[in-house]
Computed example of a mutant assay.
Amino acid sequence: MPETPSPAVAFLNAFPFKVEPDTVLACRGDRIFPGLQGLIPAADTNERSNDGEPGLPLPPTAVIRTLAVMSVANKAVLNKNKNKNKNKNKNKNKAAGGITAQASAQLVPAFELRRLHQQPSVSAFTAARRFCWETLNILAPPGPDCTRLETTVLLSMQKRDRERARRLTDIEREATISVSEFTRPLHVEDVAGYSATEGVFQSILTACEYVGLIYKDKFDRLRPSHFEPLLRPLLAVPPHAAFPSNHAFQCYSIAFAFATILPEHPATDELARIAQNVAENREWAGLHYPSDTQAGRELARRFAPYLHDAFGQSFQAVRAEWT
Rank of each mutant, 00 (worst) to 15 (best):
A26C: 06
A42D: 09
P59N: 02
V72K: 04
N50T: 12
A76H: 01
A101E: 12
K90R: 12
L39G: 04
E20V: 03
T100P: 08
G29I: 07
A95L: 07
A42Y: 00
Q37L: 15
T66K: 11
K75G: 13
V63D: 05
G97W: 02
V69I: 07
A26P: 07
K75F: 03
V63C: 14
I40P: 01
N93K: 08
I40F: 00
R48D: 07
D30A: 02
A105P: 00
P21V: 02
Q37G: 14
A42E: 05
A101W: 10
V108Y: 15
R48Q: 14
P21N: 08
P109S: 06
G55N: 02
N79W: 11
V69K: 09
R28S: 12
N81T: 11
K88I: 00
R28A: 12
P54W: 02
A62L: 05
N74Y: 08
R31N: 02
T100D: 15
T45V: 03
Q102D: 12
E20W: 06
A96T: 10
E47F: 04
V69P: 02
V63F: 01
N89F: 09
G55I: 04
D44R: 09
N91T: 07
S71C: 10
A105D: 08
N46D: 05
S71F: 09
P60K: 04
P57K: 12
G55R: 01
A43M: 09
K86N: 10
A95W: 00
R31G: 04
G97R: 03
A101R: 13
A103W: 03
L56T: 06
R48L: 15
S49N: 13
E53K: 13
I99L: 00
G35Q: 06
P34S: 11
A105F: 07
G35D: 09
A105H: 00
E20A: 13
A95R: 12
V24Y: 01
V108E: 14
N83L: 09
N87F: 11
E53P: 10
V63G: 09
I40Y: 02
A96W: 14
P109R: 04
L25Q: 05
D30V: 05
L107W: 04
V63A: 14
T23E: 15
V108W: 15
A95D: 08
A62T: 02
N79D: 12
D22F: 02
A73Y: 03
T23H: 14
N74L: 13
I32H: 05
F33S: 04
A96H: 14
G97D: 02
D22M: 13
N91E: 05
C27W: 11
K75W: 00
G55Y: 05
D22K: 12
N81F: 08
Q106Y: 09
P21C: 10
